[in-house]
Design a protein around this nucleic acid. Structure first.
Lengths: 136, 136
DNA sequence: ACATCACGTAACAATCGCAGTTGCGGATAT
DNA sequence: ATATCCGCAACTGCGATTGTTACGTGATGT
């Protein structure tokens, strides 16, 4: 699989689930469709379960399904549930007295936070029910 | 050093250069100040040289200096020179006929391009001459 | 009851990108 | 000529992520 696969895998799977919200899906089936491994699927979907987006059930009739209607799950919910970050949070530099470094860090950190916020805002405009329709 | 260090290192160095544009700086000195290695500095600044932001000279009086006035170098110039990417370009998925995956990829790729564009646009509002001043 | 099935989790290997490091060649000033 | 820079290639080490195996836990059907 390619990079940033967690978000891709999650959205891909939720996109399918949005089409048949009742159906129970096993991680093995999801993995087969996505071309990856059941454990990987459980790892990723596990985060969505912790965030209350999915429900997992064990046993014979077990598997995964949406915890609420597809229209009530936005792409931002998924993004945030996975703790994804456009740019990794970097701690402020150790103060060895370089004013340039400190001013720079402030500027960049502020700007990146703003961009991250913009992304989340845009992601929240789309629900997983709309994934299938060609973007418009 | 921390992550995203290329951009940090580049901006940090250019920030200092903007204060004394005439002064020639050796990669060893830059590395010492930034807490890294001369070769790493040459790797990063080399990209900026290729992009026409810096000039490098060899030999005894060699070193690095800005290729043009600090006011004419924006943070976006630096970002683009380094070929930085908020999210790595991922090729469209192999068409194994999953409409959800394709529609999803289109949506996400479009949105990410838009965010990237926003970032570059915001970065272009600041020049390296302004780095020292506390962000305002 | 009990075998079966699916998730939950830990542990480890494989891979990838990146920083760090060493070494050597080419260019330039003294 | 020599010292001093940059340019570049090759290698190592580290951290993050994915892939894989193995085992425990809980729910279901017979």
């Amino acid at each position: 699989m390619k990079r940033n696969s967690r978000l891709s895998l999650a959205l891909h799977t939720l996109g399918h689930m949005a089409g048949e919200p009742e159906r129970m899906r096993k991680s093995a089936d999801i993995a087969a469709h996505a071309g990856t491994n059941p454990v990987v699927v459980r790892r990723v979907l596990g985060r969505l379960r912790e965030a209350g987006l999915l429900v997992a059930e064990k046993g014979h009739a077990g598997g995964w399904r949406l915890a609420r209607p597809p229209r009530e799950i936005t792409l931002a919910d998924v993004y945030l549930a996975l703790n994804e970050r456009l740019v990794p949070v970097d701690e402020p530099p150790e103060p060895h007295g370089c004013a340039v470094e400190e001013a720079l860090h402030d500027r960049v950190a502020t700007l990146m936070d703003e961009i991250e916020q913009t992304l989340v805002s845009r992601l929240s405009e789309t629900t997983i029910a709309e994934i299938r329709t060609p973007a418009g």
